[in-house]
Amino acid sequence: MSRARPDSPLLFDLPIRPDFSLEKAARRDGFWPVAGTDEAGRGPLAGPVAAAAVILDPDDIPEGLDDSKRLDAAARESAFADILARARAVSFASLCAGSIDAGDIRKASLEAMRRAVACLSARPLMVLADGRDVPPGLPCHGRAVVKGDQRSQSIAAASIVAKVMRDRMMAHAGGCDGRYGFEIHMGYATARHRSAIGEHGPAPRLHRLSFAPFRR
């Protein structure tokens, strides 16, 4: 698959907070509505990779939108509720550990974003996707935006939705199987998580067996 040419700003070109300028430019060019999409969970040893897509109302943009990694849990939850209340459309999709193992995490992340866009209740004419690749199979034009969750409010909103939803899924997994502490580390390779893996081995259908330390 050919890689889309990314929009790669210099570090000092990044705004302090994401804004709506990319969306406004797309609208001037006749591409409206505009959706932002982003994923959460590329790096963990366990759990799904999740993605969200969001179409914001340009006249009612939630306050405090930012890269989900730059917000604490309380701020993410608050922003999540605001996004659901005020956005024109929000959707979420995920691919399980088995689907990740069947291919690779990059392909799974892009497919999760494609599915999230496909599930929107309103069809966008442009999708702004975080990262260096446009998800293949989009129903409309797409643009890859490097560090998009720090540049575009639509992508930032999607990053928050994806992160909150994935964290809730992992907290539920932790409630179902208390051996690993999923509700604390969300599947990332913390010392506690690695110790639990050494003691109990991988959890069926949750751990990504194509990832180290499982891959042989």
Rank of each mutant, 00 (worst) to 15 (best):
D104G: 12
Q153K: 13
C119S: 14
A26H: 06
L120N: 03
A158C: 10
S68Y: 05
A129M: 02
G36K: 08
T37R: 05
A118T: 03
R28S: 14
I105M: 12
A108G: 09
A75G: 04
D130V: 01
P124M: 08
L65M: 05
R86D: 04
P139Y: 14
A93F: 07
L71R: 08
L56Q: 10
A79V: 04
A74Q: 14
F31K: 14
L84W: 13
A108C: 11
A118G: 06
A35R: 08
Q150Y: 00
K147N: 01
A85H: 09
P62Q: 07
A93W: 02
F31M: 13
L120P: 00
P58H: 11
H141F: 09
G43W: 09
A144Q: 04
A102Y: 05
S121P: 00
G36E: 08
D82V: 01
A53C: 11
R143D: 01
D29L: 15
A122E: 14
I55P: 06
S91N: 03
M113Q: 10
I105D: 02
A158F: 02
L125Q: 14
S68N: 05
M165T: 12
Q150D: 00
R88L: 14
P44G: 06
A116S: 13
A51R: 02
R115E: 09
P58I: 10
S121T: 15
L71Y: 01
G43K: 08
C96A: 14
H141I: 04
P136V: 01
V134Q: 08
M126L: 15
V90S: 10
I61N: 07
V164Y: 05
R115W: 01
A79T: 01
S78M: 07
S159K: 01
R106S: 10
I105K: 11
L71N: 02
I155M: 06
A158Q: 05
G43C: 08
S94A: 15
A50G: 11
P124K: 07
S94G: 03
V164Q: 07
A53S: 12
A81P: 00
C140Q: 04
D133Q: 11
C140D: 03
R151V: 00
V34L: 09
E23A: 12
L95E: 04
K163H: 07
G47T: 13
G142H: 03
A93N: 02
S159Y: 01
R123D: 07
R114G: 13
M113H: 06
A46P: 10
A40R: 05
A122L: 15
A81K: 12
G148Q: 00
E77H: 14
D59S: 12
V49H: 02
M165F: 02
G30T: 03
E77K: 14
D57Q: 10
V54F: 09
P44Y: 05
V134R: 06
V117M: 11
Q150M: 00
S78F: 03
A157G: 11
Q153C: 14
A73H: 07
L138F: 13
L120D: 04
D72A: 07
S154V: 04
R76L: 07
Q153V: 04
R76F: 07
S78W: 01
